[in-house]
Computed example of a mutant assay.
Amino acid sequence: MSAHGPMPRSAWIFPALAVLLFAVATGLGLEFTPSAGGLLFAAVLLAILFGTVFAAVHHAEVIAERVGEPYGTLLLTLAVTIIEVALISTIMLGVKPVPALARDTVFAVVMIVCNGLVGLCIFIGGLRYREQDFQVSGANLYLSVLFVLATITLVLPNYTLTTPGPVYSAAQLGFVSVVTLVLYGVFLYTQTILHSDYFVGSGSDAAHGEAPLSNRMLALSVALLLVSLLAVVLLAKKFSLVVDVVTAMIGAPPAFAGVLVAVLVLLPESVAAIGAARKNYLQKSINLALGSSLATIGLTIPAVAVAAYVFDKPPLVLGLNTQEMVLLMLTFVISMLTFGTGRTNILFGLVHMVVFAVFLFMVFVP
């Protein structure tokens, strides 16, 4: 979907279909079961859910063009994070507890974004322009906050003494959630007010010669964005049933559910990031990619922790295993090298994509 020109029909059809599907499924008591009818329901659900997520991101892009950078990228990131929190919370708080889902999804988002998406954007940009530049100061701020958040939420739980295993005690989880929110909040203040110039690159994908967005279209996009987000939240319960049964049917490892949720919420934003890289606006790609990682950890972990406490669910399993920690540390190192010079080329992109391929392979063949 393009944020320019007339609103595409899919931008309002899919949110309407999502609300209609939820009403029909709830009224008739439709549930997903491993049968012909159940598989048809699952296919329809996934098609409408993906379309609604794309619609939500489209409307966020329309609004983002009006408010400008870096607020526009921030709006896109927050919209995707709301969808992600809804899906994780719904699956995790279902009848069958999944205390490790938040960890698996957050880790999958970091690996998909920092290796798969970043690598693909750099690789595509390198093929088309040989080299692309970006703001080193902005990238360093992203990475410094991301490294701290990822370490205290995904690595440190393995080495605490109050509780054994890869979990935090209630007091520790509460403290980590608070400092995570504070750090992310200060980052947003830095990004939008103190040093917004750090996050605006020299390239631009702005449209030239197009009529400015009217107030009527802006209001319509705001309303449809809210409807789209609400529709995804309403369908999250149905989606959780599909994830559970499909994972069992294909014999996938537990981490597969986290990867599936991450792919669903990141796909539209990934399309926008790749499109920006193709237009030689790598800075926007970096803002979208690294911003998604920060928002996922900075907002998802505290939100899921609160949900687990309120609904009296088992403690969240947050600590990664040794293999995953190695991949995370490797991602940190190559990210510092990639974003340390202010210029990229295809080799940087390929290195990130190889690490992502290793991560994906290890999910199924650990």
Rank of each mutant, 00 (worst) to 15 (best):
S2N: 15
A3P: 05
P6S: 11
P8A: 08
A11K: 00
A25K: 09
L28G: 02
S35I: 02
F41Q: 00
A42W: 06
I48Y: 09
V53R: 01
F54H: 12
A56C: 06
A64Y: 00
R66L: 08
E69A: 12
A86E: 11
I88F: 00
I91G: 11
G94E: 06
A100H: 08
V109T: 14
I124M: 10
D133R: 09
S137D: 03
L143N: 03
S144N: 04
L146N: 02
V155S: 03
N158V: 09
T180Q: 01
L181G: 15
I193L: 10
L194W: 06
H195F: 08
V200Y: 06
S202L: 14
M217P: 01
V222G: 05
A223D: 04
A223K: 03
S228V: 02
V232L: 14
L234R: 13
L235K: 09
L235P: 12
G251W: 00
A255R: 09
F256D: 07
E269A: 10
A273G: 08
A273Y: 02
K284W: 04
S292T: 12
S292M: 11
G298D: 08
D312Q: 15
G319A: 09
N321H: 10
M325T: 14
M329H: 06
T331Q: 14
T338D: 05
M353G: 03
V354Y: 00
F356I: 07
L360A: 15
V365A: 14
